[in-house]
Amino acid sequence: MAAFEYSAAVLDHYERPRNVGEATRANAHAEVRSDTHGDRLTLSLRITPDGIVEEARFRAYGCVVAIAAGSMLTEMLRGRTLAAAAGITDIDVARALGGLPATKLRCSVLAGEAIVRALEAFHTQEGVGR
């Protein structure tokens, strides 16, 4: 397959990923893993009592897109309300990255899954129904 057909944004987030690590006093966390091809993404959030994502951090194991998507996701989440955060999908992340090669779209799916799982965990812990 053709490799290295990446946008400038993908390369930027791969070479200079933002927000790596774990949020301080994180209250929402998820680790998602690709069933098929081994990529892993962790997402760690601190959500304020009035429902704002104050801090978002990630870790990624896998390919260039997994890293870039994790980084871009955290940038898109910071400062957002819970409702806005819940609306972010892997397509949004891919678009924000300037698009991805068709064969690599599946590598950004984890980003969409991570935000869903992290918010699930947050709501479960907070006792708030979805």
């Binding site: 790596v20 680790e31 892993r40 194991y61 890293i67 899954e113 799982r117 699930e120 965990a121 947050f122």
Partner: peptide
């Protein structure tokens, strides 16, 4: 550099795993 970005299986919080959601830290 890539290891500083990577997930580390041994360091997973409780409940982390395949498609799983961790609780608050």
């Amino acid at each position: 550099r890539l290891r500083t970005i990577s997930t580390a299986p041994e360091a997973l919080p409780v409940g982390g795993g395949k498609g799983g959601a961790g609780g608050g830290v």
